[in-house]
Design a protein around this nucleic acid. Structure first.
Lengths: 219, 219
DNA sequence: TTGCACGCCGATCTTGACCTCCACGGAGCC
DNA sequence: GGCTCCGTGGAGGTCAAGATCGGCGTGCAA
């Protein structure tokens, strides 16, 4: 029944400065939230994981929801920035697709916890959480939409629809790739998905390129 | 005023045969679960929505989780069947893609509640729920995977990766389409997404070269 | 050395939601 | 027509989990 009964948390209850303690609490909360989801995650578990007691947790965060939101805010901007960065990294659309897909897979590979925290959140019904998650999705879609509009001349609603499909493809494939234990080599998986997406979007008729009417005609 | 407040529940507390009562309870539960999610949905709300009291609910279902699982089971097979049916409806891959995309959009259009119930579940951490949801995803992916393998000769892991991407594209696009209030006309949206997917997958190097016009290298 | 301040912990409270017990009312039967 | 039975309804128990209060030990200044 000693204090150090658990596992790899701090061996002894040592006093930490506030910023370090806060970062440690955020890390512990991220592990618990990702492992069990928001609802199944108990504040007791987070505190135990961090090697402190619950009051310390409540001295750093007003409540469970605020802790979760702080964690979300830590990652939301990073995700948008990565996708947008891939869009801005090159003027060649093929490279852009490759870069965006690589961004998804990199994020999955190295920060899968953040990805799952945002995109598999079980608190999307909460307005605060919903707003943040939708901001990320809209941000990713918007980054792609601009390119689609400027290159294909589709209407904004059409371009956004396609962009959402592309984002869904990349996200779902990356998720599937990770969930199946990285069975396919990462570079190969990236190339496959990038090819899929590139072939899909590149074939769309350019402005003034072909017969007008319905650009969505399959043929 | 209590019984007839919401919508089309039984106007008066009439005695119903068990099967009809059960169906009514399932319908009420679906509305509540979709509207508020699993956790925020209260059994009191479901009972009130159905116009009965809680004991009746517990005479039909042992508990909240079982009620949710029964609801899930009602729809899981339907979703898989629709996608698989679209795959089997035609030997032409282009028609298959069209049919599958139409299946997604039809499901979104007409049974969006079922879609949201399955794919936006906030109880995916529960093993029972996770198993069912993953079975649907795997079923949809598997249906497409067989076609991809037989037509492109890719390895199973590669084909499954692409299939997951395609399913993600269709699902995300359909979800986006619905979330934005069906802004784009349905037929046009279907055609756009089907074209995106078909262009993406049809360009992959064929083994026999049946449907795709020009096999192209993966860039 | 001694008083002070501060961060930390065990134990506790409260709320809210899932899940059952006692009264009522209509339907079938003699 | 009266008795019995079954299903309904509201009120209550229980428990888990979020949120909080008095005590303790350490480091610093005078």
């Amino acid at each position: 029944m000693t204090a150090a009964s658990g596992g790899q948390q701090t061996a002894r209850p040592t006093r930490l400065p506030r910023s370090a303690r806060r970062k440690q609490l955020l890390a512990a909360a991220q592990q618990i939230f990702v492992a069990h989801g928001y609802h199944a995650a108990a504040m007791d578990d987070i505190a135990e994981r961090a090697g402190v007691s619950k009051p310390v947790l409540y001295q750093h965060f007003p409540g469970k929801l605020e802790l979760y939101l702080a964690l979300l805010d830590t990652h939301c901007d990073a995700i948008i920035a990565k996708v947008r960065g891939a869009m801005l990294a090159s003027p060649d659309n093929k490279d852009r697709v490759k870069g965006a897909v690589r961004a998804y897979f990199d994020f999955m590979d190295h920060e899968s916890e953040a990805f799952r925290l945002v995109f598999e959140s079980d608190l999307r019904n909460d307005p605060q959480v919903r707003q943040r998650v939708e901001r990320v999705e809209q941000g990713c879609i918007a980054a792609v939409t601009d390119t689609i509009i400027s290159d294909t001349g589709l209407r904004p609603d059409q371009a956004e629809l396609l962009a959402s499909g592309l984002a869904g493809a990349a996200g779902q494939a990356a998720q599937f790739w990770l969930a199946n234990g990285r069975r396919t080599p990462k570079a190969e998986a990236e190339a496959l998905v990038a090819a899929l997406i590139w072939r899909g979007i590149a074939s769309f008729p350019l402005q003034g390129g072909s017969t007008a009417g319905t650009p969505a005609e399959i043929g």
